[in-house]
Amino acid sequence: MPDSPKLTARQQQILDLIRSSIERTGAPPTRAEIATELGFRSANAAEEHLQALARKGAIELVGGTSRGIRLKSDTLRSLNASRLQGLGRQALLPLPGIAQLALPLVGRVAAGSPILAQEHIDQTYHVGADMFARQPDYLLKVRGMSMRDAGIFEGDLLAVQKSKEAKNGQIVVARLGDDVTVKRFRKTRGSIELIAENPDFKTIVVEPDQDFELEGVAVGLIRNSLLM
């Protein structure tokens, strides 16, 4: 494994904030959110630090989106080394002496059946309980690129906490008719919207007579590259 990049205290602070945001909401923070959290005068100051982190190889920046920040796989491995030792293609191995969560991995969901039905569970992953700010109930394998600009990609494992309610702006797992989808949630007085984080995908407006149900909210993400 390559050596971790040498970071200044401020750069480490920003990197920790990015990781915390991904664990908490499933998406990296915006420049404006970083500036607010760390007391910068403007988002430009946050951008300068992000550029420095990118030059050091700690992150990758994706143009054209406010949340276009990706943790590099080597950085993820370094940050999670104490929690995710022994990663293999089949499972995250339990660590002695550390509280573990046994999370079912949900693959493709059949139309109209419960998301945690046994036939949908591909395997069980063991992860450190302190990986997530809020405890998830299952992992969902992401399909498609509709949440690309939130840093969620095809094949990633989304950590989901079961919930029938969500706040505006949260990333949710929702059932709409026969489909299960991952989108950003927004509710107004007159409608519910499921918003993609990719301009190639349209916002889904849930009609009052549609079969709609929230399955959970995202509380973290495991990058697919960690499982390679």
Rank of each mutant, 00 (worst) to 15 (best):
E213V: 07
V160Y: 04
A102M: 09
G190E: 11
N224Q: 04
G64V: 10
D200P: 04
P208D: 03
P208K: 06
F212E: 05
G39V: 03
Q135E: 15
A117Y: 10
D149S: 14
D156R: 01
H126I: 05
N168Q: 06
S163I: 05
T25G: 01
A46S: 09
K72D: 10
L140G: 07
Q85G: 14
I222A: 00
S20N: 10
A91E: 14
G220Q: 00
R19Q: 12
K162Q: 14
S42W: 03
E37L: 06
T30P: 01
E60I: 02
P136N: 07
E33K: 15
L95Q: 10
I69E: 05
V206W: 00
L103Q: 03
A218L: 03
M1W: 12
K162S: 13
A52D: 09
G151L: 10
F132G: 01
A159C: 13
L92C: 13
L226P: 00
D156M: 04
G64A: 10
P96I: 09
P114G: 09
A102C: 09
E47L: 08
G177D: 04
V62K: 01
D3Y: 11
I121W: 02
T65N: 02
D178F: 07
L95Y: 04
V173L: 02
L61C: 03
G63L: 11
G169A: 07
F212S: 07
A43W: 08
S191A: 14
S78W: 14
A46T: 01
L194F: 04
S191Q: 15
L71H: 05
K141G: 11
L157D: 12
L53I: 08
E215A: 09
V219C: 02
H126K: 03
P96R: 10
A46E: 02
R10D: 08
L76Y: 09
G39Q: 11
M131N: 08
V180E: 02
Q51F: 12
A159G: 12
A102E: 13
V173K: 00
F185R: 01
L15C: 11
S78H: 15
R10L: 14
T75M: 12
Q135H: 12
T181K: 02
